[in-house]
Simulated assay, not measured.
Amino acid sequence: MSGLPTGGVIPELFRGLFDDAAVFPPGNLPVAGAVPAHRAHRTAWYSDAVGPLLCGAGRLGELAAAVGTGSAAETGGGPLRVGLVLPGGSTELAPALAAAAPFETAGVELATRDAAEAVAELDRLLPPDIPAAIEVPRELLRGDGLDAVLDILVDSPYRAKFRTGGLVAEAFPDEAELAAFLTGCAQRGLPYKCTAGLHNAVRHTDPETGFEHHGFLNVLLAAQETDPAAAAAVLAERDGGILAKAVHALTDRQVTVIRNSFTAFGTCSIAEPLGDLAALGLLSSPSPLHQEDR
């Protein structure tokens, strides 16, 4: 990546990549604590790397109360940027949009078992200036199901969303499954975001749980691939030095292709992925990165 910035400037490859999912498992930060923590992220030197604060539909009341108790200085002089996560599907869309009125709605993430129905409801209810991502359960994306869903989404204005981890081993897709999703999107020019399990830069086995975690650097580099075998090989790489070297070699055009595809992922920690990038020499920090309470 030519001219990798120094002195705390966030490289284009990582801008807006980390959506703040602090209130979700395994972080589970209380909403009252997540709001000031997010405000701090948004005013820190690394703010260009940070996306909106993600909040589930059922916790928007808590969020409004937490924001309402803050001082003018804490609110930063403007509305909180919030990404609405709707695990209950399109029935949650209208009430969530109404409950989010005090905030700046940065996007909607809608889970569904029927992609066509979700597209229709988003077309009907979502203001045109608010982006959305549609998540279909992984079991429905196997075999011909993946092509069917991606074909529906590519004809819509909405991104795909893919779950890359969770609280049990079965929640983590293997390299072949994730590669099929990434390359299916790449072949169609369909953007997507990911969620869960991507806190660290490099693929690894968690020493406490034994879960196989994908690395967000692996996913970024695999996002430019259209061949499933090539993408799976990148996803399987466990050597951070090799991945860092590949990032340094990216051209500006490749960075654009990658980020037009892989737009963001939810992470319950902001400091952890930034710390990994700094350790790999991909980010220059002007001040120490502290692991926030999670």
Score class of each variant (00 low, 15 high):
165 G>Y: 00
108 V>E: 05
167 L>G: 01
223 A>Y: 09
276 D>E: 14
169 A>P: 06
116 A>G: 12
147 D>S: 13
28 N>Y: 06
215 G>E: 03
155 D>A: 14
238 R>A: 13
26 P>W: 03
126 L>N: 09
26 P>V: 14
133 A>P: 00
54 L>R: 10
11 P>G: 07
167 L>W: 00
82 V>W: 07
50 V>W: 03
211 F>G: 02
264 A>R: 14
155 D>Q: 15
246 A>F: 06
150 L>C: 02
294 R>L: 11
232 A>L: 11
281 G>E: 10
177 E>V: 09
160 A>Q: 01
26 P>G: 06
175 E>L: 02
52 P>A: 15
201 A>S: 07
94 A>Q: 15
242 I>M: 05
147 D>N: 10
144 D>G: 12
119 V>Q: 09
47 S>Y: 04
140 L>R: 15
196 A>S: 15
126 L>W: 08
69 T>C: 13
51 G>F: 03
197 G>C: 11
21 A>H: 07
118 A>H: 10
141 L>N: 04
102 P>L: 10
109 E>Y: 00
129 D>C: 04
217 L>S: 01
173 P>F: 07
113 R>Y: 10
112 T>R: 06
102 P>E: 11
36 P>G: 04
215 G>N: 08
285 S>C: 14
67 V>A: 12
236 A>I: 00
106 A>W: 05
42 R>T: 15
189 G>Y: 11
225 E>K: 12
264 A>T: 15
49 A>E: 09
116 A>K: 13
84 L>R: 07
61 G>N: 10
171 A>V: 04
214 H>S: 06
85 V>I: 12
164 T>I: 07
159 R>Q: 15
83 G>K: 03
81 R>V: 13
153 L>W: 03
85 V>P: 04
229 A>K: 11
92 E>T: 14
103 F>A: 06
173 P>C: 01
227 D>T: 05
5 P>M: 02
153 L>R: 02
103 F>L: 05
111 A>Y: 15
149 V>S: 00
223 A>D: 09
